[in-house]
């Protein structure tokens, strides 16, 4: 589907793109980097590094969750875009079909 005046779109490819970013979000969600940071406290008990590691763990948990959510939203948006274009296309096709086999110049 393309238009020289302003836009073009291939909805199935958009769904593939949506699937890719959703997959990335899912993979990221399965990671738990903050848990590895807890080993720093075990390695250097009572140190400044241990305290800093706790702060970083909080930042990472929030940061990873934000990225995952943003990626999911992006995937949803792509999928919705594909759906919307297809819906518009379908509606347009339906309107055209509703005119039956009449000659378009037959008024």
């Amino acid at each position: 589907m393309s238009n020289d005046a302003g836009f073009g779109v291939r909805p199935p490819a958009l769904r593939d793109a949506a699937g890719a970013i959703a997959g990335a979000a899912e993979q990221l969600g399965a990671l738990a980097p903050a848990s590895a940071l807890s080993r720093i406290e075990r390695g250097l008990p009572g140190s400044a590094s241990a305290a800093a590691a706790r702060d970083l763990a909080r930042v990472w948990r929030r940061g990873y969750a934000e990225w995952e959510a943003a990626a999911r939203r992006h995937g949803v948006a792509l999928r919705a875009g594909a759906d919307d274009y297809e819906a518009v296309d379908a509606r347009a096709a339906a309107r055209l079909e509703s005119r039956g086999s009449r000659d378009p110049l037959d008024r």
Binding site: G6, F7, A17, A20, A24, L28, G81
Partner: peptide, 30 residues
Amino acid sequence: ALQDELDDASVIGLWTGSAGASAEADRLRL
């Protein structure tokens, strides 16, 4: 390893126009 997914999520050449540009800008932010 997420590089492939990020590349595959690009809409360049799949979706042109202002909406497509917005979608690509979102992906680049990610």
